[in-house]
Write a protein that binds this DNA or RNA. Structure first.
Lengths: 354, 354
DNA sequence: CTGAAAGCGCTAACAG
DNA sequence: CTGTTAGCGCTTTCAG
């Protein structure tokens, strides 16, 4: 059916091994022969059987990308960055959706090993048991995480500076005069979201040392945001500003506020995290912390490929900067009758873009 | 390193071929031996080397998914449906982003063939030259298209009923009294979008036989929608309703209208196509035609796997139904001073969901 | 029912 | 520089 190395060898009157050398640009092939081979190859439209090559080299040119759900715009953006980087390096990416389900995650992981992928980029290993994480670590397949799991020394990681992002959000709201604030985040352990909360809490401590932000945990998606916001309105009506752990949560929050007749930003200010596309489309447009999702994806793959090629076990860590995107969903808190004496302390909005 | 069939054979005191038969559940293996093998396999944590298997069988258990851009929510939703269906069938999917660039598309296609994927799901072959399409068709690798290319008899296809969707949009706007309308669509040949236009034009012909809708073509994304809307406002200010070829175009349109101080739906009604998530988030929420993107993805893969298994060359075609999702972006046209005598003819909104 | 042998298409020593 | 040989890990005849 398809034409093989042996066919080329016959055609060019050389041995198959010579054809292999010529095609792979190995040194030590007479120019004339190389040309004869290359000519035959293009004449016969030769295409190497990668499966055969993989079998002998023991590595495929594929990398695994294990995200929670590609429909999540964050994952999609990361995936595109990853795929572009892989394409540049001549690799291809096999896509897996784990829904963060530990069972699926492990099943995918091993199935990727079965096809001898060169390495794997995955969201997080936080939902996995200790033994599963050990299994992954001891697989000798390079792994790049999109979150930082402090205990795991063998994994590389690429993240944004979540802590600073949370801090920026807090400082911004504080700068607008808000002191009675809430944070809506994930119920489960999620290191990226936790970093955001830490930074936010730190910023708020500076302006309201004795009043802790309200902290609610739920599903870290639009529905979760909707439910958490409803709960918040009922139990903490005094809150004047909300920091959502990500934009999806913010969308759900906005919908709940809208339905309850609470206006954004007039009654409550809202700030998100990620800067996915709908953030600029919604009305009012969402002020949010932007992280370079595409670059995170491409950096993850670049690190992965570097590790594959060097074949050392040394993990790399990369942390991207974040910035505040000021839009329309936050506004200055009108001065309350009782002076709060904070005017001098207001943080200035850091980097701001239209 | 990894443990192989031969290892199991030694461990279970049988030949490798017997191990193979036992593991693959082939008939004709004594129960006792089968158990001995299975036991050894689980004891040694045996995992088959899929690459080796693929080399001998000539087919990998992977399928290719060639979309224009995974960041497009339509593609992401399709991809998730596709991946889930593949997972159920024990296949995995390698993701490629072509940007509809013919060169990238062909490069990806052949690179997928090089790894002997069982089949390929791709957006469309409309941007390809005739010879390239022939090359794809003659590759003997099953292909499922997400658009219907009337000339290509060898490809399967899965689409929604674009023509009916366009008709629904037109009938709905007509039912609200709109007769001076515009359609914003792609500049390039795009069979899905063309079907929508055909249906829309047909619906409008019934209420305004002599007034053709304004038809503008541009980039079929948010930016294109923005630009086309600006052009529309300048050249055709009399238009009272816009049908956008997809939701992304509608988002750009909404932004342009907003910036020009034109209110939706008070001044202009807007209807989209796809029903991607931001459609329900934007303010006002977008009335749109919904197509089952997830099901389209999973159906495409199911058809593909069916064709792979049957190994016949018979293409299948599947067309999904669409429905109108009525939200807030359209409103009835106030009766003009000059009676138009159309009241009896208004189409009723077909299927409507909250 | 099981073993022996061959081979998928390629790369990688090792000789010459 | 080129050919010979061996083998990656598996499946699949074909005998026994």
């Amino acid at each position: 059916m398809a034409i093989t190395l042996a066919d080329l060898a016959r055609e060019a009157n050389v041995d198959a091994s010579t054809v292999s050398r010529a095609l792979n640009g190995r040194a030590g092939v007479r120019k004339e022969i190389r040309e004869r081979v290359l000519d035959a190859a293009s004449r016969l439209h030769y295409r190497p059987n990668l499966v055969a090559r993989e079998l002998v080299t023991g590595k495929s040119n594929a990398i695994g990308l294990l995200v929670s759900d590609i429909r999540n715009p964050f994952s999609a953006e990361v995936a595109r960055g990853a795929e572009d980087a892989a394409y540049r390096a001549g690799h291809d990416v096999v896509l897996c959706n784990s829904d963060l389900d530990p069972v699926k995650q492990m099943r995918y992981f091993f199935s990727l090993l079965d096809k001898r992928v060169g390495g794997i980029v995955m969201n997080s290993v936080a939902s996995l048991s200790r033994v599963d994480r050990k299994r992954i670590a001891s697989s000798n397949t390079p792994v790049v995480l999109l979150s930082v799991e402090p205990r795991e020394h063998s994994f590389s990681s690429v993240t944004c500076d979540n802590e600073r992002g949370g801090y920026l959000a807090g400082a911004y709201l504080a700068g607008l005069g808000h002191t009675v604030v809430a944070h809506l985040t994930a119920a489960v352990h999620h290191s990226n979201l936790e970093g955001r909360w830490r930074g936010f809490a730190r910023a708020m401590r500076r302006v309201a040392p004795r009043r802790k932000p309200v902290l609610l945990g739920g599903a870290h998606n639009s529905r979760g945001g909707f439910e958490m916001a409803q709960q918040l309105l009922k139990k903490y009506p005094e809150v004047t500003a909300i920091f959502a752990g990500n934009d999806a949560i913010a969308f759900g929050t906005a919908r709940a506020l809208h339905m309850a007749g609470v206006r954004i930003p007039d009654d409550i200010s809202l700030i998100g995290f990620d800067d996915i596309e709908p953030a600029s489309i919604m009305q009012p447009s969402l002020t949010t912390i932007s992280q370079p999702m595409y670059e995170i994806g491409s950096a993850a793959v670049e690190i992965l490929i570097g590790r594959i090629n060097r074949n050392d076990g040394v993990p790399e860590h990369r942390k991207f900067d974040v910035r505040l995107i000021e839009r329309e969903s936050c506004r200055e808190l009108p001065a309350a009758p009782s002076a709060r004496g904070l005017s001098g302390e207001r943080a200035s909005p850091a980097e701001v873009r239209a």
